[in-house]
Nucleic acid binder design. Structure first.
Lengths: 198, 198
DNA sequence: CCCCGGTTTTAATGATGATTAAAATACGGA
DNA sequence: TCCGTATTTTAATCATCATTAAAACCGGGG
């Protein structure tokens, strides 16, 4: 038995745990948290439902990890975009590009944080904190763009909500088709940031 | 006993059935279809779970009606925008305005069609058909705008997905605050269509 | 006051699904 | 080949609902 709480290393165990999280993310995106049974998830790995408990403490932890992973990926996209520099508009476009790539690329399905109220109390607080932090940082990017003149003055909270919504909804209609992935990458970053432009 | 299938008239029964659908929509938006129990829904009406069966045949029909209502409202927004005329861009903006108003206004919470796979087979086909039809019609509006020169040439499928996503995600963060509703109405239509402009 | 249709509740029933413990299997190294 | 650890399955257990049937409630017309 292994302490299954904190590890994603490059071991056989860690790899399979990673696969598990992706399978769960896909299922959750399709049928929601409560709508997917552990059997649904385990089927994707050719296992029985009980086997999941070897890798994770339970269904609650499964969502939690999926959501945390989603938050990490979103944060990384924003980190990289900011590190890459440029005007506020440049950063915003780069962020959309990276985040959209994450959704459609090999990062595999990313869970959308669609059922936060179903989380355990303490998990929910943590995920909400991450989510709020991410929104706030993105809004700061928009404000920076307004200051440097690359973005038209606007309600950054609402504009951020619109952009995040467009991105968050992707998993609802994107199902892994490479050709479609190309079209997303070619359309979203430009369309979503052209509306910001001064 | 009343044939509870087809009626939403202005009777006491019809009114309460309408309230029921709204309560269900709110619950589904918050915790997903499987995540909400009939008890959750009935609590909003001060009833017990069993009382719901007086108004509706079961949980499946409840989602189905919620999704159908959502499709109706979206279709109506598009109908009205098209009837109102103007360039393709004008129509697109008007549609966003109307649909966003529906989400934030007195139409009460509109269920987002987030768990279509959980529907019964025949219900799912119907809802999917409505959904596809709506997307196709909106894409036609975009194409019309490209032809009349009001919209920049683009991948209308992907652009439509982006716009719909931004709208569909609204119920995830909007919870009835009037001041926020104002800001949504002031931001979404312009932002989402400015990105289309030629 | 009593009856009746419309409405709601109480009290089962049954299915589903998360979770656990114990048993079974796989498999690399001695 | 044999052992021990890692992994998975089988077979309970237990709680949570959806659903149903029967009984109770409630208000208006006779």
């Amino acid at each position: 038995m292994v302490s299954n709480s904190t590890k994603s290393a490059t071991s056989a165990f860690g790899d399979k745990r990673e696969q598990l999280l992706r399978a769960a993310a896909r299922c959750f995106n399709e049928k929601g948290y409560s709508g997917t049974s552990l059997k649904d998830v385990s089927a994707h790995l050719g296992l029985t439902d009980a086997a999941i408990y070897y890798y994770i403490d339970g269904k609650q932890q499964l969502v939690y990890e999926c959501y945390r992973r989603a938050a990490d990926i979103g944060r990384a996209a924003l980190d990289d975009a900011i590190a890459n520099g440029g005007s506020g508009l440049d950063i915003a476009r780069d962020y959309v590009r990276r985040h959209v790539d994450a959704h459609c690329g090999s990062a595999g399905p990313i869970a959308i944080m669609s059922e936060i109220p179903s989380l355990r109390d303490d998990d929910r607080e943590h995920i909400l904190a991450l989510s709020r932090e991410h929104s706030a940082r993105f809004e700061q990017v928009l404000e920076r763009g307004i200051e440097d003149g690359s973005i038209l003055a606007c309600d950054v909270r609402m504009t951020g909500n619109a952009i995040m919504g467009a991105i968050n909804w992707i998993p609802k209609w994107f199902h892994g088709d490479d050709a479609v992935a190309q079209r997303v990458a070619a359309t979203f970053p430009d369309y979503l940031t052209r509306g910001l432009g001064a």
